[in-house]
Design a binder for these strands. Structure first.
Length: 332
DNA sequence: AAAAGATTCAACCGCCCCAAT
DNA sequence: CATTGGGGCGGTTGAATCTTT
């Protein structure tokens, strides 16, 4: 059985995305919104499979993504969430709205795993990272209690619900709408900055690192009047910390995306409300439908943060249990 | 300065879920 | 009911980059 991979087709391009491809993809999504990935390669002419397009969008081009520089708080959240949820990176990522599951997964595999290993083999007590063993013991106890509570509550709930099918909360679709573990919902509003910001940064970087001779090039976008792009650019190279492009070129590219330069110049890595973006056109607002939990829809996040960062917060724990009863119970 | 080794992370692969037919 | 196929997820890979020798 099993279907052949969607990317096995001849003529489907693999490997790193070029800036031209990024622009094409972003332009298309700006116009049509994310989703219906199957049609993206056909409609855009991109020689990429639909999965590749989706991945590129969700992991890199999607607005509001924060890259690199995980804070200590984020680290702690990831560690505790990983302990709770296992390698369910998408679920973990739902608590860190600005991070992608891929990013978290990578960070876990490259940094946190080692860190924890060190901690386990290291000396007792306070460690260099600020995680104390006593704290983790306390967390461990809490996690066990949490699991037990969830299991009991789940059992009670399902018994109760078996008497009341029509409004059953086991209809996970309804429940998931408000749950942080839920699959991203198209209906969720977003506070993401426009992806134009991402592209703008990307282009800024490209301008900083002028194109190399055409040997590196792939098909160059005909809409661009510039030389062909440097093929090596994309990921990791557009961090906001990178220096500024000359204002004129930045403005030029920004205007290409109906953006003013202040947005792209001042990428704070904080989520930017669509309302805060002066030049955001109605087309851009399609990103409001982007499918990640947003910061405005943050009650569960706040609770779990409270829980993660405050051992003594029994009320937060209770609230969390209440909120995550259904999905949480499935975890154990 | 150069080679070797280590690390990082974007992208791919294969599997699963589930809605549509 | 079974089948199909799109979308999503987690694991893995490998090229690029960084660090050490």
């Amino acid at each position: 059985m099993g279907r052949p991979p969607c990317c096995d087709k001849i003529g489907v391009k693999k490997g790193p995305w070029t800036p031209e491809e990024d622009i094409i993809l972003v332009s298309y999504i700006q116009e049509h919104g994310p989703g219906n990935w199957r049609s993206v390669p056909t409609n855009t002419g991109l020689l990429r499979c639909s999965k590749s397009c989706r991945l590129r969008w969700t992991n890199y081009l999607r607005p509001g993504i924060k890259r690199g520089n995980f804070t200590e708080q984020e680290e702690k959240m990831i560690i505790h969430l990983q302990a709770l949820l296992g390698n369910r990176w998408a679920a973990i990522a739902s608590y860190l709205p600005q991070r992608t599951d891929n990013d978290i997964k990578n960070y876990w595999n490259t940094h946190l795993k080692k860190k924890l290993k060190k901690l386990q083999t290291g000396v007792d007590g306070q460690n260099q990272d600020g995680f104390s063993s006593s704290q983790s013991v306390s967390k461990g106890q809490w996690e066990r209690r949490l699991q037990t509570d969830i299991r009991m509550a789940k059992q009670a709930l399902s018994e109760a619900l078996s008497l009341d099918k029509p409004n059953s909360l086991t209809d996970s679709k309804d429940l998931n709408l408000s749950h942080p573990y839920s699959r991203p919902s198209q209906s969720q509003a977003s506070t993401y900055a426009s992806s134009a910001e991402n592209i703008s940064r990307l282009l800024q970087n490209w301008m900083k690192n002028p194109p190399k001779p055409a040997a590196h090039q792939t098909n160059s976008a005909e809409t661009m009047t510039q030389n062909s792009f440097n093929n090596t650019t994309t990921a990791g190279s557009i961090s906001s910390e990178e220096g500024a492009l000359s204002a004129t070129t930045a403005e030029g590219f920004d205007s290409f995306f109906s953006f003013n330069s202040s947005n792209s110049d001042n990428v704070s890595h904080e989520s930017v409300s669509v309302d805060q973006i002066p030049n955001l056109t109605p087309e851009n607002s399609v990103f409001q439908d982007e499918s990640k939990p947003n910061l405005g829809d943050q009650v569960p996040l706040t609770l779990i943060e409270k829980w993660l960062l405050d051992d003594g917060s029994a009320q937060a724990h209770e609230d969390l249990i209440n909120l995550s009863l259904e999905d949480g119970a499935e975890l154990f």
